[in-house]
Design a protein around this nucleic acid. Structure first.
Length: 471
RNA sequence: GCCCCCAUCGUCCAGCGGCCUAGGACGCCGGCCUUUCACGCCGGUAACACGGGUUCGAAUCCCGUUGGGGGUGCCA
């Protein structure tokens, strides 16, 4: 999620300026050179609709260019070899009474290259390295606080600071927009940049971090951040993009939910707020439901179907991810019923769901073979409901004479029963509650009339009869 | 420990020296609409962390304090 937000802001900025978006995979560490790593970057971007004009480029394929830069730094003395292990460094610190860290230990030891030997960058001992940041202004780092960092590992591979300086220069990168967690490493890249004589550095912008409710940087381990989980739970990518765009930035006119092209139009990198932002799931729900409501019935049905396909299955997976396993040969028939229900009830469903997976919960009683009865609702509307038995009896009788061709007429019939009984009894009789419980088993839900048509005359009457028998 | 960043309603975003008795959105709480639920509409709740300056005037500028966060790897 954090990476997606960073990518989105890069994309918004590039599109806003008519610039070029470059996708570069920073896989200098061997552990990152895997297909899963690349997929984890590319798939969420594709889902969100964030595209790029160049790449993906892989830093791991540019080893020789990085190697040449390292040689250059070694040759002019800005870099040197070091063979100290972590433990040895700590020993030296302890012996010298210095805080843990690398205090230029190998600067003058004359170490020569060999297996396991690293190359470190010689940081200036005085002065200051300044990052001119678009969202934060001038950020200065005293050079004394910078430690001689590794630019080439023991296995010969470059670290990302080195690779970034070199690649940004060679690839003509003009703007580097990334998370604030990288702000502290920027002086390293700038120092390398200067040492290599690259001239004017790119423009930097460090975005505020996305944090959890406890205001900590989002973490894969403890926070719900995997985008595919949101996809699976029925969030629309366009809603996710809209929500993400609103974290750290807001349109000048306060219109928050709006088409992407307008966001591109209005986006302003310099207006990004520097404070961390909480990813609020409740707000995502609100935005997602707004996007769902804006869909046409056809679009809604198309997009909801994959999430509702398993509804009503014998061992039904309400999450909609049913794989058909255990769901018998009537699965295709059920899918057809689900499709018909989502399409014909689209409007009613759209104003009631926050995510596409919610659809299942509203239509399961229409699609399932039988009613799952909520006993509390049964008690309230049928046992305690005024004249419930008479209502069901009359409704059944009158419905039996109808052909179910009009939802409006079905409504008039059921409501008419209530009105007639109210008059004859002399007390208010509500006919809808008992009918609702008889048909759906619950006390609240969708308007009943179109679902009754979906259920069909036969099944509707059967359920009413079943309720009467139970009474 | 050291370095860096941040600080307006519970949350997100406005505000960039006077238009602020601080605005919008989400959430929450009421009400209206409705013979269910929901949508919609109306209303309410709720914030400039604290202390010093600067200024005729500060949420807005400066300094400090406090609080939060990030970094401190042969990860990125």
């Amino acid at each position: 999620m954090g990476s997606a937000r960073t990518a989105l802001f890069n994309w918004l900025f590039a599109r806003h300026c008519g610039g070029e978006m470059v996708l570069r995979v920073e896989d200098t560490d061997a552990a990152l050179k895997t297909q899963e790593y690349v997929d984890a970057i590319v798939e969420p971007l594709r889902w969100l609709g964030i595209d790029w004009d160049s790449g993906p480029h892989f830093q791991s394929e540019r080893r020789d260019i990085h190697g040449a830069a390292i040689e250059q730094l070694l040759a002019d003395g800005t870099a040197y070899y070091c063979d100290l292990t972590r433990a040895e460094i700590e020993e030296r610190c302890a012996a010298a009474g210095l805080p843990v860290g690398y205090h230029g230990w190998s600067r003058d030891r004359g170490v020569s290259d060999g297996p396991g030997v690293v190359v470190r960058f010689r940081c200036p001992d005085h002065g200051e390295t300044v990052v001119e940041d678009v969202v934060r202004g001038r950020v200065g780092f005293p050079n004394e606080s910078l430690e001689d960092f590794v630019i080439r590992r023991g296995d010969g591979s470059p670290t990302f600071h080195l690779a970034n300086a070199v690649d940004d220069h060679h690839m003509g990168i003009t703007h580097v927009i990334r998370g604030e967690d990288l702000l502290n490493t920027t002086p390293r890249v700038m120092l390398i940049w200067q040492a290599l004589g690259f001239g004017e550095p790119p423009v930097y912008a460090h975005l505020p971090l996305l944090v959890n409710a406890k205001r900590q940087k989002l973490s894969k381990r403890r926070d719900d951040v995997a985008l595919h989980n949101y996809q699976r739970r029925g969030y629309l990518p366009e809603a996710m993009v809209n929500h993400l765009a609103l974290l750290g930035w807001g349109p000048p006119d306060d219109v928050e939910i709006r088409p992407l092209d307008e966001i591109v139009e209005l986006f302003d990198l310099a207006a990004v707020k520097p404070a961390p932002a909480f990813f609020d799931p409740a707000r995502l729900d609100h935005i997602n439901s707004a996007y769902i409501r804006a869909l046409t019935p056809d679009q809604f049905a198309d997009r909801a179907l994959p999430f509702a396909a398993g509804v009503g299955a014998v061992d039904g997976d309400a999450g909609g991810m049913a794989d058909g396993q255990g769901a018998s040969e009537d699965a295709p028939a059920r899918t057809e019923r689900v499709r018909a229900a989502t399409l014909r009830l689209a409007g009613d469903l759209q104003q009631r769901v926050a995510t596409l997976t919610d659809v299942a919960g509203w239509i399961d009683w229409i699609v399932a073979d039988d009613v799952v009865c909520d006993e509390k609702a049964w008690h309230k509307s049928i046992v305690k409901g005024r004249a419930a038995a008479e209502v069901l009896e009359a409704v059944e009788a009158r419905l039996a004479r109808d052909d179910f061709s009009s939802a409006e007429r079905l409504e008039a019939i059921v409501m008419g029963v209530g009105d007639d009984l109210t008059e004859s009894i002399g007390a208010r009789v509500r006919s809808q509650p008992p009918v609702r419980v008889a048909l759906s088993g619950t006390g609240a839900g969708l308007p009943l009339w179109e679902p009754m048509r979906l259920l069909g005359k036969e099944e509707t009457l059967r359920r009413i009869r079943a309720a009467r028998e139970r009474l």
